[in-house]
Write a protein that binds this DNA or RNA. Structure first.
Length: 445
DNA sequence: TCGTATT
């Protein structure tokens, strides 16, 4: 039915209105298709904009890749179609071996001779330092996974090379992903990033700062437009609260039981309170509401507001902002268990809609590294009804790329958000908030 | 630095 060495292709940048039957003709011209599957969300059935494609013949896949990959843009897409081997195919890593515990004086030829009996060697590289001295290890790539496996079976631990401290190591080389992960862990070790305490405080700190400054921006806007004594009073009150909150949050110990012998914030003891919502669910770090105001409901549905749209009036953002501030002020560790339970029950509602109407979609750059979709949403909620908030994430590292999109359901909210948030300082950076580039409307049919 | 999605 299909070649034993067939390649499964990943196809990206597919318009979400195209199904298998629409795509088939496009790909069939390169050969007989064995399987073509559009990826769908497992719960909602939502089209993910990509597909897997396997031809019966390996050659067809290669032809399709070279003819289509980055070569052609499907209607309605901004970027060219992607056609390349799926991640599951590995990047040749499944036939590449890492060889350790070689003798320092062994050459590439020596290693080749050792590995030749098990198959066709495509690549053989000794790892060397800057001075050219062997590091005692190498990469050997075979033509197939089976050959590589045979080499492992026969050679791993089979002998000890002169000058090596233990027997020969022969294993599959790390995949790119494994390498990246390893690097991340190394960096994390140096920076202490993966200490749960640190990452939570990092997120919370930046988030708090963003909220505080956001309040200031909102108040400035309110004062500027209203010239109303009440606004001035409200502003003064909120500034006071901001000061209170900052000191309360950052300086106070987070739990009564932690840190008797370590300073607050550096404790390595388990911290069940604030840590859990962010770390486990990626939810907003805001605590449960205590005052009956609606501003924080969104938090518990992972940023999706379960109620009809808030009106984008001046009063509404202020009210919400105010409610948010009270949460910070009032948040004690005692809320932790409630907060935790609440978060665990929060429904996961996948975002159905990504993009709003023209003029409603914002592009945001210079986001703090630790901001996720939820924080982005939270930050723009005061300006109107947020349809979606998406932070771009590097797929290999799961790290934010520090930019994202926010979509409102109306242009007025979008403009208000630009007014208030563009140039907004967070840490060392200033947010860049602008309308998303409109996708090219005048494409020749 | 412009909606990236890998069963």
């Amino acid at each position: 039915m299909k070649d034993h060495d067939a390649i499964k292709l990943f196809v990206g940048q597919i318009p979400r209105n195209l199904e298998e039957s629409d795509l088939k003709p496009l790909f069939e011209e390169f050969g007989k298709i064995y399987e073509l599957t559009v990826l769908k969300d497992r719960f909602t059935g939502m089209h993910k904009g990509c597909a897997f494609l396997t031809y019966c013949a390996r050659d067809s896949a290669l032809k399709a890749q070279s003819a289509l990959h980055e070569q052609k843009t499907l209607p309605g897409m901004n970027r060219p179609i992607q056609v390349k081997p799926a991640d599951s195919e590995g990047r040749g890593e499944d036939r590449k071996l890492f060889v350790g515990m070689l003798g320092k004086q062994q050459s590439e030829d020596d290693v080749r001779r050792l590995f030749e009996p098990f198959g066709q060697i495509e690549e053989c590289t000794i790892l060397r330092g800057p001075d050219g001295a062997s590091k005692g290890c190498a990469f050997v790539k075979y033509g197939s996974h089976a050959e590589a496996q045979a080499a492992i079976n026969s050679l791993h631990g089979s002998q000890t090379m002169p000058g090596a401290s233990s027997s020969l190591v022969v294993k599959f080389a790390d995949t790119d992903k494994e390498r990246t992960l390893r690097r991340m862990h190394q960096m994390a070790g140096q920076l202490g990033i993966f200490n749960p305490m640190t990452i939570q405080f990092g997120a919370y700190g930046a988030y708090t700062q963003a909220i505080m400054q956001q309040q200031a921006a909102l108040m400035a806007a309110a004062q500027g437009t209203c010239l109303n004594p009440m606004a001035a009073i409200a502003a003064a009150q909120m500034q006071q609260m901001a000061a209170f909150n900052v000191s309360g949050l950052v300086a106070a110990p987070m739990t009564p039981s932690s840190g008797t012998s370590t300073p607050p914030g550096i404790s390595t003891a388990p911290v069940p309170s604030i840590a859990t919502p962010i770390g486990v669910n990626g939810f907003s770090p805001l605590p449960p509401q205590t005052n009956g105001q609606p501003a924080s409901e969104t938090i518990y549905t992972n940023g999706i507001h379960p109620y009809p749209a808030q009106s984008p009036t001046v009063a509404d953002p202020l009210q919400q902002a105010y409610a948010g501030m009270q949460h910070y002020a009032a948040y004690p560790a005692a809320y932790a268990p409630i907060s935790q339970a609440f978060h665990q029950q929060a429904p996961i509602i996948p975002q159905q809609q990504r993009e709003g109407p023209e003029g409603c979609n914002l592009f945001i750059y210079h986001l703090p590294q630790e901001f996720g979709d939820a924080e982005l949403m939270q930050m723009f909620l005061p300006f109107g009804n947020v349809i979606s908030a998406k932070v771009f994430v590097d797929r290999a590292t799961n790290q934010s790329k520090c930019f994202g999109f926010v979509s409102f359901d109306n242009p007025t909210s979008a403009q208000a958000a630009i007014q208030a948030m563009n140039g907004f300082q967070i840490g060392m950076k200033r947010l860049k908030v602008q309308l998303k580039r409109p996708k090219d409307a005048n494409r020749p049919y």
